Amino acid sequence: MTISAFSFLSRRLAFAVDAGLWLLAGLHGLLFASFLVVVTLASGARAEDGACAGHNLLTEMQQDDPDAYRRIVAEGDAVPNGKGLFWKIEKAGLAPSYLLGTMHVTDPRVLALPKGAPEAKAQAKVLIIESDEILDEQKAMAKLMTKPQLTMMMDGKTIQSYLTRAETEQLQTALKARGIPLGAVSRMQPWMLSSFVALPACELVRKAKGAAFLDMQLAKDAIRAGQPVKGLETMEEQLSAMASIPTEFHLKSLMEMLALGGRMDDVMYTMTELYLSGDIGLTMPMLKAVSPDGSDEEGYAEFEQRIVTARNHIMAERARPLLEAGGAFMAVGAMHLVGEEGLVSLLRADGFTVTAVP
């Protein structure tokens, strides 16, 4: 797939959202317990019942601009392994394993597994997820407290130090819509704020009430069933990868999300719809179409290498011995499955036969 300079914005947005969703989801019992629940209750967040709303941007585009819609579909069709959430992993002499692409949200529709996945998970010898530390929140919190610089600004600065007055007001408005006073999160790293802006108010409310996201629900079910749960990364590794990217780069991502304004809820709604239909390859082209104008690709190669490609290779390497034993059920973010260096391609390069489960 040819990537224009314009699409660098959309790819950065997609992976920033995906990484942020996982980390916020995994930390909801940690960070949220420490301040976000109080913030939400004190400020009266919208969507108190946890119901999400939004419009499917692709459906609207299909009606309003059919040529643009056809171009997006064609671009999505060209993404390697861009269709399908549930994959079968096979190698001669081994019991089959399975790979499920997840979305790190608490949407009840997302929590419902695709056809065949519940049976495959029930029969698995081990569940593999991105980080098994989500199962021991107190231990994870204790570890993260030793390195607060991974999530917080430790130099005395606040997010306002980097923004103009107009940009600060824009951020304040976006956070207020999600029930979060700027003052409560002003010392958080910009990528954390981007994650808050990306999440609809309804998702924040559900998380604040303790709702489990898909990966955590799978892990909890596995523990109850007596299945071992293995993680491919630590939360410190995930946070360190995000923190290793220059602040200026994260600030650009934050401003891009703020520029989307009210459309951000529609973006998340559309991403969820694409996930539910298994059309993961359409995510990037869709985001490219709705991203704010711009062609700045500065820093993107480094971002993609550290946050996407390198993590894909780490996941594949660490999953390999578990998959070589056969009978595993692996569940990681769906964005890690697609592309030439996505997990499906990497596992095939390791000698596994990987096929989408219809």
Rank of each mutant, 00 (worst) to 15 (best):
residue 75 E to L: 12
residue 75 E to V: 02
residue 83 K to A: 04
residue 52 C to P: 09
residue 30 L to A: 09
residue 58 L to P: 11
residue 60 E to V: 02
residue 114 P to A: 03
residue 81 N to F: 15
residue 107 D to G: 03
residue 108 P to I: 12
residue 107 D to V: 08
residue 116 G to Y: 07
residue 116 G to M: 07
residue 94 L to F: 04
residue 77 D to A: 09
residue 59 T to C: 10
residue 52 C to H: 10
residue 80 P to M: 00
residue 32 F to Y: 13
residue 35 F to H: 14
residue 48 E to P: 14
residue 49 D to S: 14
residue 60 E to S: 11
residue 100 L to K: 00
residue 50 G to K: 08
residue 72 I to S: 04
residue 103 M to N: 11
residue 74 A to K: 14
residue 91 K to F: 00
residue 52 C to W: 01
residue 31 L to M: 13
residue 39 V to T: 14
residue 43 S to D: 15
residue 55 H to S: 10
residue 99 L to C: 01
residue 61 M to G: 02
residue 101 G to S: 01
residue 105 V to C: 14
residue 39 V to H: 11
residue 84 G to P: 10
residue 42 A to K: 03
residue 88 K to R: 13
residue 67 D to P: 09
residue 98 Y to E: 09
residue 59 T to G: 15
residue 59 T to L: 12
residue 44 G to P: 06
residue 113 L to G: 07
residue 81 N to Y: 15
residue 104 H to N: 13
residue 73 V to M: 10
residue 82 G to C: 04
residue 102 T to W: 05
residue 76 G to N: 03
residue 115 K to E: 15
residue 73 V to D: 00
residue 40 T to N: 06
residue 39 V to M: 14
residue 47 A to L: 13
residue 107 D to T: 09
residue 50 G to R: 11
residue 72 I to R: 08
residue 35 F to C: 05
residue 35 F to A: 10
residue 114 P to W: 09
residue 32 F to H: 06
residue 43 S to L: 02
residue 108 P to T: 04
residue 116 G to S: 02
residue 100 L to R: 00
residue 69 Y to H: 13
residue 113 L to P: 00
residue 112 A to K: 09
residue 110 V to M: 03
residue 116 G to C: 02
residue 32 F to C: 01
residue 114 P to S: 04
residue 112 A to F: 05
residue 56 N to E: 05
residue 110 V to G: 02
residue 62 Q to M: 10
residue 32 F to M: 07
residue 58 L to W: 09
residue 41 L to G: 10
residue 57 L to K: 07
residue 115 K to G: 01
residue 35 F to P: 01
residue 67 D to W: 13
residue 74 A to T: 12
residue 103 M to T: 10
residue 72 I to E: 09
residue 70 R to P: 12
residue 78 A to D: 14
residue 61 M to I: 13
residue 49 D to Y: 08
residue 54 G to P: 13
residue 56 N to A: 08
residue 46 R to D: 15
residue 98 Y to V: 07
residue 102 T to P: 02
residue 38 V to T: 12
residue 98 Y to M: 08
residue 82 G to I: 05
residue 107 D to P: 03
residue 46 R to T: 15
residue 119 E to W: 01
residue 75 E to C: 02
residue 39 V to F: 06
residue 40 T to W: 04
residue 66 P to C: 00
residue 76 G to I: 06
residue 100 L to F: 01
residue 111 L to N: 12
residue 63 Q to H: 10
residue 111 L to C: 06
residue 50 G to M: 12
residue 78 A to T: 01
residue 43 S to G: 06
residue 60 E to N: 11
residue 116 G to F: 02
residue 43 S to Y: 12
residue 37 V to T: 15
residue 67 D to F: 13
residue 42 A to V: 04
residue 72 I to K: 08
residue 116 G to K: 04
residue 48 E to F: 11
residue 59 T to V: 08
residue 99 L to I: 04
residue 118 P to A: 07
residue 41 L to C: 07
residue 44 G to M: 08
residue 81 N to V: 09
residue 78 A to N: 05
residue 119 E to S: 03
